[in-house]
Design a protein around this nucleic acid. Structure first.
Length: 151
DNA sequence: GCCAACGTTGGC
DNA sequence: GCCAACGTTGGC
């Protein structure tokens, strides 16, 4: 799950304990949100950061439900075409799990042979919610917990 | 700040 | 249904 740390970082989630994941306005990303189950684990990715990369881990703690910001005319996520009868956009709640002791930068991800097929590494991909396989998840976690690069 | 990639919009 | 124009994402 991507977030710009200037807007909402893993530190913000750590302080909050848990929070809702608002503002997803892409159908594909929304569909991934709707497939999430309580207990699913997520990599918290800092996009538009210097450098971008995986900063921590979160856990889904509430199933997808309507994103209230779509009905808030004052919100930048307001969507006039969405109706409360048939909400277009969803959000889930996530809870803080950990800050990775070793930040895994995008370059680190690229440099790791086992992560070759990771979606976020594919050219042109922009989805802010992306599925990650168990093997990839565990690999990123391993990188994030080792003090020296894992080879 | 640039720009490639990609999604959405809207005229036809 | 096509596709040009436009907006957004996000790495660099």
């Amino acid at each position: 799950m991507k977030s710009e740390p200037d807007v909402y970082s893993i530190e913000d989630l750590r302080k909050a304990g848990s929070d809702h994941w608002e503002g997803i306005r892409n159908y594909q990303a929304r569909n991934f949100l709707r497939e999430m189950a309580v207990g699913d684990m997520a990599l918290f990715y800092h996009s538009n950061a210097k450098p971008p990369g995986v900063a921590g881990v979160a856990r889904i703690c509430r199933l997808a439900y309507p994103d209230h910001t779509q009905f808030d005319t004052k919100s930048k996520y307001f969507d006039a075409k969405s109706s409360p009868d048939d909400p277009r956009w969803s959000m889930v709640d996530v809870e803080f799990v950990e800050v990775l002791p070793n930040y895994v930068s995008l370059q680190d991800l690229r440099d790791d042979a086992e992560l070759e097929d990771l979606q976020v590494l594919r050219k042109g991909q922009r989805l802010s919610i992306q599925p990650v396989s168990r093997a990839h998840f565990n690999r990123v976690l391993k990188l994030g917990k080792s003090k020296t690069p894992v080879r």
